[in-house]
Structure formats: structure tokens, C-alpha cells
Nucleic acid binder design. Sequence first.
DNA 1: AATCGAATCAACCGCTGTCGG
DNA 2: ACCGACAGCGGTTGATTCGAT
Length: 323
Amino acid sequence: MGRQPCCDKVGLKKGPWTSEEDKKLINFILNNGQCCWRAVPKLAGLLRCGKSCRLRWTNYLRPDLKRGLLSEYEEKMVIDLHAQLGNRWSKIASHLPGRTDNEIKNHWNTHIKKKLKKMGIDPVTHKPLSTITNDKTSSNILEQSKKDQPIQQEKNQEILMPQMDIESSSIDQSAIMEIKSEEDDDNSNNNNNNNNNNTETSCANNFDSIIVEVNNNGFCIDEVPLIEPHEILVQDQLSTPSTSSSSSSSSSNILEDLKFLPSFDDEWPLMENNNNNNNMGFGWEIDNDFSSTLDFLLEDDHSDMMMMNNVTFDESWKFEQLL
DNA sequence: AATCGAATCAACCGCTGTCGG
DNA sequence: ACCGACAGCGGTTGATTCGAT
């Protein structure tokens, strides 16, 4: 026999969570940790299924979540990771501390997709839209049919992130490299299928330069000089669009272009209050709904529980600072 | 001020791989 | 070995908010 069913789905509540339900769930998780989601709703006194509890916790209530818009750097990271992983949101999220797959997925669909399209870049293939729309006849139809497959650069396009100041960001800087090796393993069998694109991967192991290699459709084949950490500008450092030109004027890297295209300046999220120390730190934003949860945590003095549940001292401290 | 369409995002749905009985 | 529950994932939905008219 198999296991007992997780829930009978009768009499279970659906829809938006109330602050009362949030409190119950937070209280339970902080006291007992994350385990056996099936048992959580019953033990926590919730009329929800375990799946719903897990989702609520992982996507909204976890104390290590960042809230608010993705920073410029995070967006670039998402774009780059998406270019290599496709719609594997959880994989992408795993390289962005404090961000959930759901959040990244939503942000991709509502913000990044549009920006890429505006720039003439196909958000699926990460290639210039014109080369796709202008040549839909033969092989590109095949290309379209693979739309939702991980791109993996198809061995003919490498978009690597600039070398960043590791200490200034909690984002996993080795992500690209790890993915690279993972994908090399995963897709070694696919390499033979991509020979028609006539390009080779180069410099994949070298983060001292940004290599943008594209297929033979004439988009660009460029080597971009190293951008030093001090040269990487965040939005609020850009007093005017022209100030950025010195560091990007010769860039053919579409990710760099994303940052500096003046027409998009207004839309790029600022790297501001919730991570204004540039360390992408823990940052619950206080809004009306959530402040009640914070009140709950404070009044019951759950700081010790947070320590026990992998919320670091630093995070706990920041948590209290928010109050 | 009212209406309507677009944008956003939390939550649900359904599928898949894994693991326990 | 098989069956079924579970956890996790990606796609989709729909309620809410926002902005334009």
C-alpha cells in the first residue's frame, strides 16, 4: 500500500491567505521547522492543504526572502541564467538568494520579456528578433519548435556575466561556471546536433573578459573588455545617460546595453533602500499586511527560533532593525 | 468621479520524479 | 516490482491595482 493521501481536498480553504493564517503558519514553522508539509496544516490549525502551506511559506513568508523589485544586477543575472537554463525558474532562483522561483517567473513574464522585446531581442532564444522574424522559413521554424527548451547557448552563443565584486553581492558568482559544467554534462549528446550553426565556444572558462559569440547571422561577434567592479554602475549612480557611455560605448553585449540604453532608464528598478548597501542583503519591506506579521514575531520574541531555523544572526538583526 | 483596459503577482493546477509501504 | 503519496516544478488563472480616458 502507498501512503495516506495528503488531504482530501474537502472543506479546505483556497484563495488569498489572511494575516491570521500567516501567523499560524509562521508560528508553526518557526517552532517546528520545515518538515512534513502534509502534517503542517493540521498541526498548525489551518484549513489548507500542505501544498498550499508550503507554497505560502516558500514564496511569501520565509524570513530570508527579499521583497520588492529585482535589482538591476539581479535582472541581468536572471537574463543570463535564463539564456543558459531556459524556463527552469527554480534553478535560476537558486542562484539569487532571497528570491523565489515564482517571483522570478512573474518578473520575467511581466518586466524582462517586454524589455528584451523592446530591444529587439527574443526573450526565448536571446537572439535578435529580426533574425528570427525575417527568416521563419526553414530552420528557424525548427528553432521555434524548441522554444521552451533550455537554450544552453547551443554552443554558439555565450553571454557571460562581467566579473563582479563578490563581496558586494550575495549572488552566487560561480553560478555561471557551475551551470556551464552542468550543461556540458547534460548536453554533451546534443553537441552533434548543433554543428550547423558553425560557431565555436570560446573563453568559457575565462571570466576576465565578456565574450559574446553569436551565430553566423551577422548579429555580432565581439570581445568586450573586462569591466572592473568599480566601473559597474547602478542606476542611482547614473546622473545622466551620457555618464555611462565611457564604460559601455564599445560594448556589443546585450546585457550591458540593457543597462545603458537611455530609453529604458525610467523603467529599470533602482537599487535602493531595501538593499542600499549593495550587498543584496536580507530585506523584508514593511508594508501594511506584513507589519502585522512582524509585530507578531516581535511580541512573541521569536528571535531564538529564527536562529534555530537557519535565519542567521545578521538576518535576525536586520529583521529587528526593520521594526 | 466613473469606467475600462492593462499590468501585476499571489495562488492554484497539473505534471513529474522520487521515495516509502 | 508495483502502487500511490509526496515534494517540487513550471504554466496558468484570476483578483487586485494602476493608469488612461
